[in-house]
Simulated assay, not measured.
Amino acid sequence: MELDSIDRRILEVLQKSGRISNAELSEVANLSPSACHRRVQRLEKDGYIRDYVALLDPRKMGRPTTVFVEITLSGQADELLDAFEKAVAKVPDVLECHLMAGTADYLLKVVAGDTEDFARIHRKHLATLPGVAQMQSSFALRNVRQTTALPV
C-alpha cells in the first residue's frame, strides 16, 4: 500500500496525539469522520500503526537515570546470540536492546533509580546474561532530545 499525503498527516498527528478523537482527527486531515476512521483502520490493519501506548515520565516512576551499555559476547554462534536475546528480553530495566555492527555486539538502553540501583541491575541481571565477555556502561547526563515520532 502506498501512503498518500492524507495518510501521512494522520500518522503525523497520531504519533504526537494518540488520544485525539476521530472527530478532531478528521478535521485536521480534512476528511469526513467515517472516511478518517476507515483510513485509520486500514493503517492499523496494514501495520503502519503498530500500537497505542501511554508514555510514562521516568522521573515520576523513580527511574531518572539512563545508562547505555555496550556488550561484547564471547562468540557469535547463533545459539549464543539466541540465548543472550531471550535472557535480555526478561530484564525489565532494559528498555531497548540492539544487535550492533561495530565494536560491541549489543547496545542496551537501561533505566535505573540511581547509580546504586544500576549497580544492582548490573550485578543481578546484566553480568549474568549468557556469553557476556565485556561490558561498558555510559551514563546519560541530560536528555537533550527524545521523541517516539518517526518522520513521515
Results as ranks from 00 to 15, higher is better:
4 D>W: 01
111 V>C: 03
125 H>W: 06
31 L>H: 01
46 D>H: 07
10 I>R: 06
131 G>W: 01
147 T>Y: 00
62 G>M: 06
98 H>P: 05
125 H>T: 01
38 R>D: 06
46 D>V: 06
114 D>G: 09
122 H>D: 15
117 D>I: 00
28 V>E: 04
38 R>T: 08
97 C>N: 11
85 E>I: 04
1 M>R: 09
24 E>P: 05
81 L>V: 15
57 D>E: 13
71 I>N: 09
97 C>V: 12
98 H>C: 05
106 Y>D: 11
118 F>A: 03
62 G>D: 01
9 R>L: 15
106 Y>W: 10
85 E>Q: 14
101 A>K: 12
72 T>F: 00
38 R>H: 06
56 L>F: 14
25 L>A: 02
59 R>E: 13
135 M>Y: 02
130 P>Y: 02
2 E>W: 00
134 Q>V: 00
95 L>H: 11
59 R>N: 10
76 Q>C: 02
59 R>F: 06
146 Q>T: 06
36 C>F: 03
85 E>K: 12
82 D>E: 10
145 R>F: 15
146 Q>M: 08
76 Q>M: 08
93 D>I: 00
102 G>R: 13
101 A>P: 07
147 T>V: 00
120 R>H: 07
28 V>L: 05
119 A>P: 00
91 V>M: 04
50 R>M: 06
119 A>H: 03
21 S>K: 04
35 A>V: 03
81 L>I: 13
16 K>V: 00
93 D>W: 05
19 R>E: 05
78 D>E: 10
3 L>D: 09
87 A>M: 06
87 A>F: 02
22 N>L: 12
42 R>F: 01
